[in-house]
Design a binder for these strands. Structure first.
Lengths: 206, 206
DNA sequence: GTCTATACTCGGATAGAC
DNA sequence: GTCTATCCGAGTATAGAC
């Protein structure tokens, strides 16, 4: 019996992440996960009872890491504009590390809405205020202009997430010029989203 | 033998669209499609040889209807700004009719990049100029400011598509307040995207 | 803990009656 | 053209040796 087998579990989780993220719950194949982790299919069942359980761990992990990114917006030691600008940089860095994250979460939620509603709510419940409330408050105190906070939030996420979401299309359309990844750490993307935020929240162009 | 059986094929196509759009190629079940079309599973194979062929028809249809929306940008009887504003309204109307369209196309492309590359190119080849070239030209002739056309295009699509793409998440997060569909014909969304376009292409806020 | 071999199940596809 | 019944492969899951 070997001593350092505990990393097998990690290898499986890494493989499972990669495969589930690409193909989703239905599309993923246990054989594919096993191959990627360079172990036998039977071992998957030894470590994680069955496919659903393995998927759940992957999905839960993804979901909480995704929502974790928003923590910074809750830190009220900084002005709201600052917080959002930090968030922009952070979420773009996060998504360039896990480009399939948004797609994965959205797709699985849309297929199995009911099942995941509770998970999202459990995560949300841990926060004393959600972002919409924060924006509403800032608006009341005239920290930001009289904008629609829901629409602003949607646009903010649109600008940050969609470039990664749609990367496969852009890649095909632009013959592998690999937009927006031509830019090593997405500096241009970050800057233009920040510009949008600054313009919208101060009504001053920069 | 009935006379009006030709609509069976249509019913199948409608059912196939709905099921494939929601679950994707792998996730979709022929039984599910048959049930939705209110016919027997065997009939699916009678009309469309097999699952792949049925899927192909659905995907091809979706892809060309999606790209059709961009036609207006090629009509050079109008100034570029006008064309893009029309496109914004049009694509948002289109996506609110088929909210799962973007997700479907992106997801299938990302799973099977190679297979669909040719299809996209076949559609693209029919156009004498693509949108990026049009933007480049407008910029040269000082019709629009000195912006990065790729980045602009990405942002434009982000703002239009992501709200529908992420609707499942927003729906869960906001407890069915059904954003952004609280707004009957998405007037607020259209207006704010148009504002963005006008601001970016004229550098004048409105 | 890890493997091979195998059992079981689901779903796509086909045969054939009507 | 539409149905029922059935086949068969693919993929999940388990048994059991090591």
């Amino acid at each position: 019996m070997k001593l350092k087998d505990s990393n097998t579990e990690e290898r499986i989780m890494e493989a499972a992440k990669a495969v589930f993220m690409k193909y989703g719950l239905y599309g993923a194949r246990m054989q594919d996960i096993a191959d990627t982790a360079k172990i036998n299919k039977a071992l998957l069942h030894y470590y994680f009872r069955n496919k659903e359980k393995l998927f759940d761990q992957v999905f839960d992990g993804a979901l909480s890491r995704y929502f974790e990114q928003m923590e910074v917006i809750h830190d009220d030691s900084l002005p709201i504009l600052e917080r959002i600008l930090i968030y922009v940089v952070q979420i773009i860095d996060f998504l360039s590390e896990y480009p399939q994250m948004s797609m994965f979460i959205i797709k699985e939620i849309s297929i199995n809405e009911k099942l995941f509603k509770e998970k999202v709510h459990k995560i949300k419940r841990n926060k004393n205020a959600n972002i919409l409330t924060i924006l509403e408050k800032s608006r009341k105190f005239n920290e930001i202009p009289d904008i629609d906070p829901v629409l602003f939030l949607i646009h903010l996420h649109s600008l940050c997430s969609y470039p990664f979401l749609a990367a496969p299309i852009f890649k095909v359309i632009t013959e592998n010029s690999n937009i927006p990844f031509h830019d090593p750490s997405n500096l241009k993307l970050k800057q233009s989203v920040k510009d949008y935020v600054i313009y919208t929240l101060t009504k001053k162009s920069i």
